[in-house]
Write a protein that binds this DNA or RNA. Structure first.
Lengths: 243, 243
DNA sequence: GTCTATATTCGGATAGAC
DNA sequence: GTCTATCCGAATATAGAC
């Protein structure tokens, strides 16, 4: 998956959505009484989208299945033939997003410089969270209410991104591109900069800051710290963003 | 309020707790049937502490008043003579924390350099959130479930800190201490670095990172960006932390 | 596959004895 | 001021007709 311009990234992800939904349907067939894939996938998309929307305003627990029924226009009875329980709805929503994220965040093998890889990772994370904003917000805010199993999963994915960044920083240190005293702690500090984009989306929307502007500012912010005092620092003090 | 060492800061805040509780009691007397201040203040402290604890694990909405009754050892009936309703409990908890925050974040007039003022603000915010961790976590996570009125209040206080930082950055630009292209956006990016401390406390505890270590890393991180290319940059490239 | 109607559980709030 | 017992509305989940 390339992370060049946001427009292109967004189109690539959206082109994948249908096959993601089919995968979720197949993985959860034992919880879904409806058998026709075409019908189910269409309904599931509506159910997930609506559930995320309501949950992100009121919280998942506060969303009654009745609310969901009314908002989707699907009756209580029918709804319960797509979901086994409210818990299994949560289950499906989570694996839906996790599938998408796992797929979109595959770092390409093209080595390149550590700096370029760092940019790729941060950019991909920000772009992905913009495309799947409701899911990212939901996942962050509801994690602590999950069952043990799901919570572990969510925390694991939080740490996974962090390790990806930390590895990149260590690599940059070795190559003389970066000069980072504590790569783990630095990676930990970079994470909330990525998360703020989907947690405070309302604020950035109000201020007319789009995802590309935010991304390039974060990259600047991070790079100022990580290249400070590095061997190849002088030549790249104020690098132009390469799209 | 000084923000020198964390220990000292913490003691100063804790010395104020009793009078804060008394103030909350007096402000909410119309919702509290119990009249003796001494009794009420002691019980309220227990109620708030326990409510924050349960809410931060399960969410405020998921915490039943029965849960709270059992955890505090106060019967349902007695509990309802301290709170008018679950909503008014929320009300009291919020003003309790807001009082404390408003009091502890008064920036001292001693001008000093912009850099020193920036340090003071960030440090005070981090230290305060460490002392009142449960309240900060609660306030962040539950804001979106609040009623219109409380939500405005919470958002206002989010923006207030941000403006404080933005002003400081603009001032630093004028003095030639900083070189920040967009003070508002930069302040917006600094905020999540402060918030991560109380949102992911478990992670930092696991890694044995204490509040002073975290604070000095954040200060380094932020300063690398804001002083980059500033007039007085050269002389202060790698400043030692002054306690 | 979808609907309406309902069984059952749970949580907020109160009454009234002590 | 504190307790026990209870009311009542709301939410999950299901039964059974179409």
């Amino acid at each position: 998956m390339s992370a060049a311009g946001f427009r292109q990234f967004s189109e690539e992800v959206n082109a994948w959505q249908p096959s993601l939904l089919r995968e979720v349907f197949q993985q959860h067939q034992h919880q879904i009484r409806v058998k026709k894939e075409a019908v189910a996938v269409e309904r599931l998309e509506l159910i997930f989208r609506t559930a995320l929307d309501i949950s992100n305003r009121q919280g998942f627990r506060a969303m009654s299945v009745r609310d969901l029924s009314e908002a989707t226009g699907i009756s209580m009875g029918a709804l319960y033939s797509y979901i086994d329980s409210k818990e299994s709805l949560l289950d499906m929503i989570l694996s839906y997003g996790a599938c998408a994220a796992g797929w979109a965040m595959r770092v390409p093998d093209s080595v390149g410089s550590a700096r370029e890889r760092l940019r790729w990772i941060l950019r991909a994370h920000l772009y992905l969270s913009e495309v799947m904003l409701p899911w990212f917000f939901f996942s962050y805010m509801e994690t602590r209410h999950f069952s043990r199993q799901f919570r572990r999963q969510a925390i694991g994915s939080e740490l996974w991104t962090e390790h990806l960044v930390a590895d990149c920083l260590r690599d940059g240190n070795e190559r003389g591109e970066f000069n980072v005293e504590d790569p783990e702690l630095t990676a930990a500090l970079i994470k909330p900069l990525l998360q703020d984009w989907y947690l405070k989306r309302w604020k950035y929307r109000q201020r007319d800051i789009d995802v590309e502007r935010y991304t390039s500012t974060v990259l600047d912010f991070v790079e100022a710290y990580v290249v400070r005092g590095a061997v190849s620092d002088a030549s790249q003090q104020h690098p132009k963003e390469k799209p």
